[in-house]
Computed example of a mutant assay.
Amino acid sequence: MLVAERQRKIVDLVNERLSIRVSELSKIFSVTEETIRRDLEKLEKDGLLERSHGGAVSIEKEDNEVSYVEREITRAAEKRAIALEAVKMVEPGDQIVLDASTTAWYMAKELPDMPLTVLTNSIKVALELSKKEQIRVISTGGNLMSISLSYVGPLAERSLKMYHVNKMFFSCKAIHPDGGLSDTNELQALLKKDMIQIADKVILMADSSKFGKRAFSQINSLSAVHCIITDSNMDDRTRERLEEKEVKLLFVDI
C-alpha cells in the first residue's frame, strides 16, 4: 500500500471512529507503530487530525467546510474514477460549470484540451485548466474561502446569473433520498443552488459514502439532478430508493 493511500485511510478511520490508538492502526495496516506515529505527525501538520496520547482524534466538525488538503486524500481513488466518467460527458463546444469540489478538480485535470468554456468558483480548477490553451476559463470572483480555495458570497452569486451553461458538474457533502442534496457550508450550498439554476443538465459526482446522509445547508431536491455518477460500493437499499425516485445512476468500478 502506498504511503498516501495509507494516510488517506487513517484519516477515514479516525473520522469514522472519532479516536483510534497507534497500536490498533499498526495492526490494521501491518506496519510498525513508529511508522504510524510518523503518519500521524504528517497528518496533524496538514490539519487533518489531532494527535493524542497513544493515538489520534478526529477534528472533523459537521458544520465546518473540510479543507482542500483533506479532501484531496479522502476517497481519492473513487473521486478520480468518477471524474473520468464525467469527462466522457463533455463534448467540444460545451459551456459547463464546475464547483469547488475535489472531484471537479480531478475532472479539470482529466479534461482534454479542446474548445470549451468552463465557469467555476474554484481557484484550483481555474489553475488546472489554465494549462489548456483551447479551454476558456471564467472565474466567478467573490469572497475567498482560503480553506477550500474557492469563491463564494453575493458577488459570486451575481456573477453566475450573467451566464447560461448546458452542463453542470458538481459534488456535495450529503445526498438523501428524501432530504435531497445538502452541504456543510451555507455559502457553498447557496452557490451550488445558483449553478443548478443556470444549467440545462445537472450531473452530480459523489462517492458512495455520501448517500443516506443529511448536512446542515440544503442545496436542492433530487429532482434537480439529471444523472448521478458514483462508485459501485453503494448499498442495495440506497440504490433501490434512488431508483424509486427515478434518478439515473452511473456506476464506476474501483
Rank of each mutant, 00 (worst) to 15 (best):
A76H: 11
A77T: 15
A77D: 15
E78F: 11
E78H: 10
E78C: 11
K79N: 12
K79C: 13
K79G: 13
R80L: 15
R80V: 15
R80S: 14
A81I: 00
I82D: 06
A83C: 09
L84R: 09
V90A: 01
E91W: 09
P92D: 03
G93Q: 00
G93D: 01
D94P: 06
D94H: 07
D94Y: 01
D94A: 02
Q95S: 15
I96N: 05
V97Y: 05
V97F: 13
V97L: 15
L98V: 05
D99V: 12
A100V: 06
S101R: 07
S101K: 01
S101H: 11
A104S: 15
Y106Q: 02
Y106N: 00
K109T: 14
K109Y: 15
L111I: 12
L111T: 08
P112A: 04
D113F: 09
M114H: 01
M114Y: 04
V118N: 05
V118R: 02
L119T: 05
N121I: 02
N121V: 04
N121E: 08
S122G: 04
S122R: 04
A126S: 08
L127A: 15
L127G: 15
S130R: 13
S130Y: 11
K131I: 13
K132W: 02
K132M: 05
E133N: 15
Q134L: 11
R136L: 10
V137K: 03
S139E: 09
G142Y: 00
G142H: 04
N143G: 15
L144R: 07
M145R: 10
M145N: 11
S146W: 14
